[in-house]
Simulated scan of single mutants.
Amino acid sequence: MSRQHSPAEAFRAFLKLGLTSFGGPVAHLGYFRDEFVVRREWLSDRQYGELVALCQFLPGPASSQVGFALGLMRGGPLGALAAWAAFTLPSAVLLVLFAVGALAFDGPLWAGVLLGLQAAAVAVVAHAVWGMARTLTPDAPRLAIGIMGAALALLLPGQFGQFGAIAAGVVAGAVWCRRSLGEDPPALLLRVSRRAGVIALAMFVAVVVGLPMLNSLVPSLWVGIADAFSRAGAAVFGGGHVVLPLLQAEPAVAAAVSPEQFIAGYGAAQAVPGPLFTFAAYLGFEMGAGWTAPLTALLALVAVFVPGMLLLVAALPFWNGLRARPLARAAMAGANAAVVGILAAALWHPVITSGVAGPASLAIAVGGLLMLALAKLPAWCVVLTAAAAGVLAGLLGIP
């Protein structure tokens, strides 16, 4: 780990990812690894695996939490906020523009772009799984844990399978991995004091308990939006897709957004880069009126992210102390191996099953993987090339 740098560095790095990271939460973890482990060398594969495992354990948007923590490590609190803003705002702005009708994701040209972007996500995730597997499952015990994690994630789709796989990896690692660990990797440079962690935990409790009480005492559009979106953000395990049904079930959202509007926004959210949680900006805009709509969009966007980030800050001060213990190190080695299994399962479903629909997408995915693995090209270059190839395939009529 390098010493702390300026928040501007984190902003620039994550803005590039916020503009090019298509494919959903699992793909984002692949983009992050390519950018910050392989290219920039901000941290090692083992450190990255630990961070992913921690964020998978916590409620909230796991990929955005990983990005927030990376920004924190590189640029302190302002770096964390810069990383979050740069990764989040591009897709939020696109979805708000979609809500006002300024963008229309339709037609054969856009279909070709989507084909290429989905194929690029296959290449990025496959490259990440292979690279992490070489580092995090180097021996028989951890390989077995990785296979077990993949099986659990496939047999129990959604948050229960992912959480169960990591929990099983923790237990199996504590039993099987005590003798197979090398040197303790460098500690994550997490500049969060224990006092700050306790304050963050208190703020989390105040948000999830206080906002419903305030909404019942002083009902208003603004408090209702903050309550609904923060509650959904606090209840999410397993990634951005899980937040969509939670938001749809919120009475405040259901009363203001029609099913047709919700489905249209959901479709647009699949087509833009960045975290799926930015769907909240679209819903918040639809819940506002006139000049207040951009403000309600911003409120919904911030509210849905706040609980997960507060929990992450609450956990970080205690992380390095815990991981220094031999038993905890073995358990975390098992959790890291399980993360590889979870990513491998997600590579198959939904990444490959939705991203490879015919010869064209298969060829683009294989070509993208070769660009990453052999040519060592950055992920954003692969994304742009894949999008252009998808358009070409559409114009030529190749399925």
Rank of each mutant, 00 (worst) to 15 (best):
residue 267 G to S: 07
residue 270 Q to K: 13
residue 228 A to Y: 04
residue 208 V to I: 14
residue 259 P to S: 08
residue 320 N to W: 05
residue 340 V to T: 01
residue 366 V to W: 00
residue 41 E to Y: 09
residue 264 A to N: 01
residue 156 L to I: 08
residue 352 I to A: 07
residue 307 P to E: 07
residue 366 V to K: 06
residue 251 P to E: 05
residue 119 A to L: 09
residue 121 A to E: 03
residue 180 S to N: 08
residue 74 R to Q: 09
residue 129 V to A: 01
residue 319 W to N: 02
residue 171 V to A: 02
residue 159 Q to D: 12
residue 199 I to W: 13
residue 101 G to N: 15
residue 395 L to R: 14
residue 327 L to D: 13
residue 396 L to T: 12
residue 354 S to A: 05
residue 9 E to A: 11
residue 321 G to V: 04
residue 53 A to M: 02
residue 355 G to Q: 02
residue 284 G to S: 08
residue 208 V to L: 11
residue 127 H to Y: 11
residue 181 L to K: 00
residue 242 V to E: 03
residue 351 V to F: 08
residue 288 G to W: 03
residue 301 L to G: 01
residue 166 I to Q: 04
residue 368 G to S: 03
residue 84 W to A: 11
residue 298 L to R: 13
residue 187 A to L: 09
residue 292 T to R: 10
residue 321 G to L: 12
residue 37 V to G: 02
residue 109 L to V: 14
residue 114 L to N: 10
residue 81 L to V: 04
residue 289 A to I: 15
residue 198 V to S: 10
residue 157 P to C: 02
residue 198 V to F: 12
residue 45 D to S: 06
residue 161 G to A: 06
residue 269 A to N: 10
residue 314 A to E: 01
residue 290 G to W: 13
residue 212 P to L: 07
residue 177 C to W: 00
residue 12 R to N: 07
residue 245 P to S: 13
residue 53 A to R: 08
residue 389 A to W: 14
residue 329 R to V: 03
residue 352 I to S: 06
residue 4 Q to I: 11
residue 69 A to G: 11
residue 301 L to V: 06
residue 50 E to F: 06
residue 75 G to W: 03
residue 196 A to K: 06
residue 341 G to T: 00
residue 72 L to I: 10
residue 157 P to V: 04
residue 387 A to Q: 04
residue 28 H to K: 09
residue 99 A to F: 03
residue 350 P to G: 09
residue 243 V to H: 01
residue 295 L to A: 09
residue 77 P to M: 11
residue 253 V to Y: 00
residue 393 A to W: 10
residue 203 M to Q: 06
residue 84 W to F: 12
residue 65 Q to H: 11
residue 34 D to E: 07
residue 279 F to R: 01
residue 230 S to I: 00
residue 183 E to C: 05
residue 330 A to T: 02
residue 71 G to L: 14
residue 323 R to H: 13
residue 121 A to L: 02
residue 284 G to F: 02
residue 226 A to T: 04
residue 268 A to Y: 05
residue 135 T to N: 14
residue 379 A to Q: 10
residue 342 I to T: 05
residue 82 A to T: 04
residue 267 G to K: 09
residue 343 L to K: 06
residue 135 T to R: 14
residue 392 L to I: 14
residue 122 V to C: 15
residue 15 L to D: 08
residue 389 A to S: 15
residue 247 L to D: 10
residue 320 N to F: 02
residue 116 G to H: 11
residue 346 A to E: 06
residue 326 P to C: 08
residue 42 W to P: 01
residue 371 M to E: 05
residue 43 L to D: 13
residue 32 F to C: 06
residue 192 V to D: 10
residue 149 G to E: 08
residue 321 G to E: 11
residue 190 L to H: 07
residue 380 W to V: 07
residue 308 G to W: 00
residue 293 A to M: 04
residue 391 V to C: 07
residue 39 R to Q: 08
residue 68 F to I: 05
residue 102 A to Q: 10
residue 252 A to M: 08
residue 61 P to H: 03
residue 167 A to D: 08
residue 204 F to A: 07
residue 114 L to K: 14
residue 70 L to K: 03
residue 255 A to H: 07
residue 336 N to Y: 00
residue 336 N to W: 00
residue 168 A to N: 10
residue 333 A to L: 06
residue 50 E to W: 09
residue 198 V to R: 06
residue 157 P to M: 03
residue 382 V to N: 04
residue 312 L to N: 03
residue 194 R to T: 06
residue 23 G to P: 13
residue 251 P to V: 02
residue 389 A to E: 14
residue 258 S to C: 15
residue 33 R to E: 15
residue 328 A to E: 11
